[in-house]
Write a protein that binds this DNA or RNA. Structure first.
Lengths: 233, 233
DNA sequence: ATACAGCAATGCTATAAAACACAAAATTAT
DNA sequence: ATAATTTTGTGTTTTATAGCATTGCTGTAT
């Protein structure tokens, strides 16, 4: 927990999209029930099969949503950056979580009880529309991902994962170094391949001059080609 | 178009879930804007990249929602039965369709303009909750499908497809013949495999006494085993 | 300095599934 | 009924990718 005086400021600055929707009365109710949590690298935020209780708002850091599959093989479903919301779907569907969430790096999150979110939606149709829109976007993305992961070949899947990282987290000030530093295993889990193949295919991309790799630092040299491989590979 | 006198009866009987939510005034607005369409076998209802205009309500028949992928390979994303709604996601996401819908067999559908649906949601929070719940369920299903299709082996994927057909359409009166008669190609498109492999694997299931196949008629003999293969295979 | 642990990289092998080719059967059209 | 077309079934070949083993590299603790 951080102290209350700074809390309201943090919230009002960061909750942005949702904040603009709420009335001052509703905002107070959020502030009164907003609890800040800090998570260490790789710490689980919630796990599959648990009952959903909170709307999570990522304030700082990076979060992955994933599903453990056959033989412990993990599939990363979505990545979150500040300020984004997650953890609400299962509550709305009236079922336990079907996926887990974990912090990729040291992260700060806010938790709002879903019971409160439900009340707020009941009283504010703009908030209802916010979630309808959010869920609809994610559903479209998920449907598209099904085809990408099942039909694209390994190069296409890796290229797609890299473009996803670009679109989600962007570049450092040099405009070419990816602003996320993932283990090869996580890159593999994002692209539905084994770690070996993620490494192998990254190497191919390096030798083709598409990227430069230095440990976990990935520089994108030929972004148009990367997107082309993602699209047609 | 069918004649108006029977129309209201059809709607009130069939729209069930949504109908119960609406006030009599709202119901009248739906009836006034509800247009019945008949579709032939394999006829497209809407196609990827088109702009969404209508909420579709399947009254009679069977509908598949699918996405065309690499090399024209089709992935079936969801199947609908009466009375279910679809076609609204893209409108809510404010984007063109990312998938297509087609009738599996001769089907009757009702179309309601999304502009009207939007107005109804604005005025009726229960309807908002209906869609939040619906979208949330589908998103969970889609995320689960990603892992099932990418990580399960061919037998597991086919077994899963068959159990999906059981759960969606059930059995004929003999309690073992599947109430849907799909082409092998469609079974393949549902299970992310080639037609050859769908045929081959169906044959394996036959020789293992799990199912009996007679043309497009599939009898499920050992449902528990089928579900077991679906879960662990 | 040394040992150790954890990643990253790479080659080799096994195998699941796709691609291809063709025949038989069933459906549809004439 | 006959021809034409589509769907189904099966065997063979090819390929992509998983699995495994090995090695080197880097950082950290002893």
């Amino acid at each position: 927990m951080i102290k209350k005086s700074t809390l309201e400021k943090v919230i009002s600055e960061d909750l942005a999209e949702i904040w603009a929707i709420l009335t001052s009365d509703e905002k107070r109710r959020v502030v009164d029930n907003f609890v800040i949590h800090n998570f260490k690298k790789n710490q689980i935020i919630y796990a599959e099969n648990e009952e959903p209780e909170f709307l999570w708002c990522l304030l700082k850091g990076k979060v992955k949503m994933f599903k453990d599959g056959i033989g412990g093989r993990q599939q990363i479903l979505r990545l979150y950056r500040p300020i984004q919301y997650f953890g609400y779907r299962a509550y709305f569907a009236k079922e336990p979580y079907v996926s887990s969430a974990a912090a990729f790096e040291i992260s700060t999150l806010g938790a709002i009880p879903m019971t409160l979110v439900k009340e707020l939606i009941d009283g504010n149709k703009n908030l209802a529309w916010f979630f309808i829109h959010e869920l609809s976007k994610h559903l479209g993305g998920s449907d598209t991902k099904i085809v990408n992961l099942t039909q694209k070949h390994i190069r296409g899947r890796l290229a797609e994962a890299l473009t996803l990282l670009i679109d989600n987290y962007g570049f450092e000030d040099d405009t070419e170094t990816l602003k996320i530093y993932m283990a090869r295993e996580d890159i593999a889990n994002l692209s539905n391949m084994t770690t070996s193949n993620a490494i192998r295919t990254l190497s191919s991309f390096v030798s083709e001059g598409i990227i430069i790799v230095d440990g976990r630092r990935i520089k994108v040299i030929n972004e148009p080609l990367l997107r082309k491989i993602s699209k047609f590979g």
